[in-house]
Nucleic acid binder design. Structure first.
Length: 269
DNA sequence: AGAAATACCCGTACGC
DNA sequence: TGCGTACGGGTATTTC
């Protein structure tokens, strides 16, 4: 579940706790979390490096190390937590990084979907990602041009990380509702006004999510409050906050898709 | 070529 | 109680 706002919130929370800390030892409890290295290579190479600072790209959290980049993708259920060495490890911990000053970083991931890369060149992992939706160079014109270059349904296109980096199922449904665009609308049928509404919807929902420290859904990610402000996600059968119509749910590309049939009118194409 | 559908990885929660 | 199934992000593979 962690999408852009949740990853950024985790990154911000961890940065002051991790910056400048050296990795004394590594416990890899679930080696299949590693995406690009063998367990031995990973442990040997990472041990002794220091964490310089943290950043986010799309849904990836990047730790800039002395010699390498340590990248995490939290997928559905991953989380990163700093604990005192006196605290026990927990059930679904997959990786522990023991740090100076008697603390450790735990990568906890119930469903084991999360992945970890250690690489000297993060472009190997991040190279195909689309633009950052909150960056200045992501303008309505850029979005419109990218939409027009494709002939795809909006919902799966917005979930495609090579089209735009950071949106997942929740924020996509919310952004489309704000923009009053049907999830099955074809991307190349949007005019400049439609594209600008979508651009505003994407930016607004991400900023709202960030403002509330992300959304906490059941077992996935905790701490945020944005789940209390959903307009359509998870609200099938309830009233649309804008027009009062009953929110509907359909399946688009295997994904649950929530929308308001009053606000988001389906059109041809 | 590019869009769309399907399988896969997993544990949890839910319905019957 | 216990079984089957839906869910969800993203990649890989297959189909159209």
């Amino acid at each position: 579940m962690p999408e852009l706002p949740e990853v950024q919130t985790i990154s911000r929370r961890l940065a002051p706790l991790l910056s400048g800390r050296r990795i004394l030892s590594v416990d890899l409890l679930w080696p299949r979390s590693l995406a690009n290295l063998s367990e031995m290579d990973f442990v040997q190479r990472l041990t002794g490096q220091s964490i310089l600072h943290l950043s986010r790209r799309g849904k990836f959290l990047q730790m800039h190390m002395t010699d390498d980049y340590l990248l995490f993708h939290l997928r559905m259920s991953g989380d990163l937590l700093v604990r005192d060495e006196s605290q026990h490890q927990e059930t679904h911990d997959r990786l522990l990084l023991h740090l100076t000053r008697d603390q450790y970083l735990a990568f906890n991931d119930t469903r084991k979907f999360g992945r970890i890369w250690l690489t000297s060149d993060p472009q190997d992992v991040l190279g195909n990602l689309g633009p950052e939706p909150l960056e200045k160079d992501f303008t309505p014109q850029v979005l419109q041009q990218r939409l027009a270059a494709r002939h795809r349904q909006l919902k799966p296109l917005l979930l495609d990380q090579t089209f735009l980096a950071g949106l997942g199922n929740i924020y996509t449904d919310e952004a489309l509702h704000i923009a009053r665009l049907h999830p099955l609308r074809q991307s190349d049928s949007l005019d400049a006004t439609d594209a600008e509404r979508l651009w505003r919807g994407i930016r607004q929902v991400l900023r709202d999510g960030l403002l509330r420290n992300g959304a906490s859904i059941d077992w996935a990610y905790r701490g945020g409050q944005f789940q209390n402000h959903f307009r359509v996600y998870g609200r099938e059968g309830q009233a649309c906050p804008v027009c009062g119509s009953i929110i509907k749910k359909l399946k688009v590309g295997q994904r649950g898709t929530h929308f308001c049939p009053g606000c988001q009118v389906e059109r041809e194409g």
